[in-house]
Simulated assay, not measured.
Amino acid sequence: MSNYIDTLHTLGTSTWLDDLSRDRLQSGNLQEIIDTKSIVGVTTNPAIFAAAMGQGTAYDEDIAKLKAEGASVDEAVYSLAIDDVRAACDVFAPIYEASGHKDGRVSIEVDPRISDDAAATIAQARELWAKVDRPNLMIKIPATDGSLPAISDALAEGMSVNVTLIFSVARYRQVIAAFKEGIRRAAEAGVDVRTIHSVASFFVSRVDTEVDKRLEAIGSEEALALRGLAGVANAHLAYGLFVDEFANATDLPEGTNVQRPLWASTGVKNPEYPATLYVSELAGPNTVNTMPEKTIDAVLDLGNLHGDTLTGTAAAAQETFDKLAAVGIDFDDVFAVLEREGVEKFVAAWNELLESMSARL
């Protein structure tokens, strides 16, 4: 029987799970939710691995082996993460093949502490790509000033890349440029560009959290009426840029797969908003929505889908942004804060994971 996630897929949005753990893999839970909830991919991040490795006993045997081998804390963390990601890639291999390599993807992120160092980022991307050694892997690289060159380098070498921590359309424009440069370089080097896939991960709910806080501080009737609109409007503007850049692209090698927008941070932070807000309002062609399981369950229970809510929405989204700017929202500052805090949160999660692993070793 089809469900609302299947309906979302018919609209053009692939649903990926924003979570992974050894428990999910060993218990068969990951395969179960593929079968029953129609998810077609998985994303991970430092916070997810911190939660997975910091509790339970699923990793104990491997941690004991790593200790006996004299592994450092960093080596232990990545060894366990690589094993989980490789196993998840194998679970998703049938979907990878059935989707023509579009879905069935599993992402692993480079160390967030090196987000300002392109050379270190591409070096670690190469290492992760080689060690996981699965064609349906995606390397997550943050869209920071320091990491943008590494995005192009990774694509140029034939890696599939999940560009993460995108908040602004201006930054997304740079990400698209980095993607196109990397794909052109790959083609020039003789790499089959049909094997390269990429997504551009826009963080949605955090935009509303930051903008709503500022609207409430302004406090006027006009400002308060605009709460809960910025995140979706920002994503709609991003989708408009995606269509402009890729719909009739003549500046890319033949066989290039478009870099799909991926909607991340799609669990609502404000309980007053519908649980499916960042799903039903961001459904449309050539997109991915990576959701925590709670949000997937909300979609399955509530649906609330009303067709393609992305195509042709950029003009209305710009009007919303103009209204937000008119009441005093400084978007340049909003996005600068969000990017800085995004990196800081991942670094904090990574440090928490390292401390926990150090104690367990």
Rank of each mutant, 00 (worst) to 15 (best):
residue 7 T to G: 03
residue 8 L to F: 10
residue 16 W to Y: 11
residue 17 L to I: 05
residue 20 L to K: 10
residue 21 S to Q: 13
residue 23 D to W: 00
residue 27 S to I: 04
residue 31 Q to K: 14
residue 38 S to G: 04
residue 42 V to L: 11
residue 49 F to R: 00
residue 51 A to I: 12
residue 54 G to F: 12
residue 63 I to C: 04
residue 71 A to V: 03
residue 71 A to K: 14
residue 86 R to C: 13
residue 88 A to K: 02
residue 91 V to S: 02
residue 113 R to G: 09
residue 117 D to V: 05
residue 120 A to H: 03
residue 135 P to L: 12
residue 137 L to Y: 02
residue 137 L to M: 01
residue 140 K to V: 13
residue 146 G to F: 13
residue 157 E to L: 15
residue 158 G to Y: 04
residue 163 V to R: 06
residue 172 Y to I: 03
residue 175 V to M: 12
residue 181 E to C: 02
residue 187 A to S: 08
residue 190 G to V: 03
residue 192 D to Y: 07
residue 193 V to I: 12
residue 202 F to Y: 03
residue 210 E to K: 02
residue 214 R to D: 06
residue 253 P to W: 13
residue 253 P to Q: 11
residue 257 N to W: 13
residue 259 Q to S: 12
residue 262 L to F: 01
residue 272 E to L: 10
residue 272 E to V: 09
residue 273 Y to M: 09
residue 275 A to C: 08
residue 277 L to K: 10
residue 278 Y to W: 03
residue 288 V to H: 02
residue 290 T to L: 10
residue 293 E to V: 08
residue 296 I to H: 05
residue 296 I to G: 07
residue 303 G to D: 11
residue 319 E to K: 15
residue 335 F to L: 13
residue 339 E to P: 01
residue 340 R to T: 14
residue 344 E to V: 06
residue 348 A to C: 01
residue 349 A to P: 12
residue 350 W to G: 01
residue 357 M to K: 04
